[in-house]
C-alpha cells in the first residue's frame, strides 16, 4: 500500500512563498548586472517578510529552498554561482536567525524589516565573498573589491527592507 505523503499547512505556506521568491530570483537573474557580483537581491524581500511574519525557521526554509530551486531551474545547480549563492544564503539565514532569536528575548532589541534586510544583505555578501576568496581566488587583491561590494549590499539591503516594510504594512492592515 503506498504511503500517503502528508503535508502540513506550513509546508504549503513554505511552498507558496518559495515559489514567489524563486520567481523574483529568476526574474532578477535575467536583468543585466552593473557589476558582476552585485545584484539587487530583491528575493530578500520575501525572506524578510516571512521572517517577521512567521519566524526564523520558516524564513530559513524559504531562503535555502529558493537558492536550490532557482539553481535547478536556471541550470546552475552545483556551479560556482550556486556555491556562492548558497554560501551567501546560509550566512544570511544564520545571521537572521540569531538576530531574530536575540530580538525575541531582549526587549528593546526589536528590528524592523529595514534592519533585518540590511543585516541579511551584509551577511549574504560577506558569506559569498569569504567563500569566493577561500575557494576560488585566494588573493589579497580581491580584498580591494570588498568595500564596493559591501556598500552595494547596504544600499540594496535598505531598499529591499523598505519594500518588505511596505508589503507588511499593506498585508498586515
Amino acid at each position: 500500500m503506498p504511503r500517503k505523503l502528508t503535508t502540513t499547512r506550513d509546508d504549503h505556506l513554505i511552498a507558496w512563498l518559495t515559489a514567489l521568491a524563486v520567481t523574483i530570483h529568476i526574474a532578477e537573474s535575467a536583468l543585466p548586472s552593473p557589476l558582476p557580483g552585485i545584484k539587487p537581491g530583491l528575493a530578500n524581500v520575501v525572506t524578510i517578510a516571512v521572517l517577521i511574519r512567521y519566524g526564523w525557521r520558516m524564513a530559513a526554509w524559504v531562503t535555502l529552498l529558493r537558492v536550490l530551486v532557482s539553481s535547478l531551474l536556471l541550470g546552475s545547480f552545483l556551479s560556482p554561482t550556486f556555491v556562492l549563492s548558497l554560501s551567501g544564503a546560509l550566512c544570511s539565514a544564520l545571521v537572521l536567525a540569531l538576530t531574530y532569536i536575540v530580538a525575541q528575548r531582549l526587549p528593546g532589541a526589536g528590528l524592523s524589516a529595514l534592519g533585518y534586510s540590511v543585516l541579511a544583505a551584509l551577511a549574504h555578501m560577506a558569506g559569498q565573498f569569504a567563500v569566493a576568496y577561500a575557494l576560488f581566488i585566494p588573493h589579497p587583491a580581491l580584498l580591494h573589491l570588498l568595500p564596493v561590494l559591501m556598500s552595494a549590499a547596504v544600499i540594496f539591503g535598505a531598499v529591499s527592507g523598505i519594500i518588505a516594510q511596505a508589503m507588511l504594512t499593506k498585508a498586515g492592515a
Partner: peptide, 21 residues
C-alpha cells in the same frame, strides 16, 4: 545574462584583477 555566465565573469574579473596585482 545567465547567472552562470555572470558568475564566470565575476571570477574572470577577479582573476584578472588579482593577476595584474
Amino acid at each position: 545574462y545567465s547567472p552562470l555566465a555572470t558568475s564566470y565573469c565575476l571570477i574572470l574579473l577577479l582573476a584578472t584583477l588579482s593577476c595584474s596585482k
